[in-house]
Design a binder for these strands. Structure first.
Lengths: 186, 186
DNA sequence: GTCTATATCTAGATAGAC
DNA sequence: GTCTATCTAGATATAGAC
């Protein structure tokens, strides 16, 4: 064949990585296959050598996003004690609010996932529960606290992104950080 | 003229009300003008007698949504003391999670608002701050608590909608309700 | 595997008849 | 004000050459 044996695999990988950022920034439904392919230097027709449909890409993309989030958030049994605190500071930052393309998938694609097929939501659920379990044990075996903290993070980011002024954006993020610190980390 | 003097105004009103539900359910970008017009018994071409563009509808729609939310959430100086508690129970319910078409605009259109033009975000900001101010005073003049509670509500709803099982959905909502009760309403 | 070309469809928006 | 018809642009997906 004219291409190395791992060429297809590598191209798919590049496409997936590239698409993650674009889709988190501009939305999935409103981004065309041509745009995603152009971003890795290819044309639209070649897309279908890698994914059977645009929806297959969405599934792969969401799954990859959640694996990535889990790697960053869940931590390991020997993560430092301030692991959660560090995650929270980073998550609830202006940098995160201003750069959806490198951030958490939930605030930016949550609504589109909610409208997706059940199979995708099953994957999402498993992943969410993994983070929840880990954080629950780190928050003194308090499952309620873990869901509450996760909800605050996602919601604060949604709100931080829909306001116009930097000032209000920072107020939302800082308030949420302080409230979590006081309530769950002291 | 062939139509009553208030015909245009009434049609616009019907269109706006009808579109609110459809767009919250299916997303704004992914819903066509024809679909929105058909829902009020008209054809696509007539849309432009009421709005200059699809984006103008989005602005009007978001503004109306926020007015509506404010009416329900902010309350008045003589609202009963349990006003906030009642709002929270209703917001963090399965019914709300399962029916975006009649619910809060932020969990379902938040990401699209985040990508919208500054003018829309300015309106959103003003409205968010109104709810925040009202809730802050109801939560013992604690601005941090108000932002934190609002964030939890929005985030919990996003998460509740992206999981597949009813069980997990209810777990997320109930945990968040309990956590808010314990932390902010006792 | 990727290209160009294309089929098919749907989108937002406009023009002119009624 | 609303209709039908249409323009233009973009979408997903496929076909066949290289």
């Amino acid at each position: 064949m004219r291409y190395a044996s791992n060429h297809k695999q590598e191209t798919r990988e590049k496409l997936l990585e590239s698409s993650r950022a674009i889709v988190k920034k501009d939305g999935f439904a409103s981004t065309g296959v041509d745009t995603l392919m152009a971003a890795v230097g290819l044309t639209g027709g070649a897309f279908y050598s890698h994914f059977g449909s645009k929806n297959e890409l969405f599934a792969a993309l969401v799954e990859r996003e959640l694996e990535n989030s889990n790697d960053m958030l869940a931590g390991t049994p020997d993560s430092p004690p301030d692991h959660v605190a560090k995650c929270l500071r980073s998550y609830l930052s202006s940098a995160h609010a201003l750069h959806p393309e490198t951030g958490c998938v939930l605030p930016t694609l949550g609504a589109e996932i909610a409208r997706a097929e059940p199979a995708i939501k099953t994957v999402v659920e498993r992943s969410l529960k993994k983070v929840h379990k880990s954080w629950s044990s780190r928050l003194g075996d308090d499952p309620d606290a873990a869901w509450a903290v996760m909800a605050q993070c996602v919601g604060a980011l949604v709100m931080a992104r829909i306001v116009e002024s930097d000032r209000t954006r920072q107020e939302i993020l800082a308030s949420t950080r302080r409230s979590i610190d006081k309530t769950h980390l002291s």
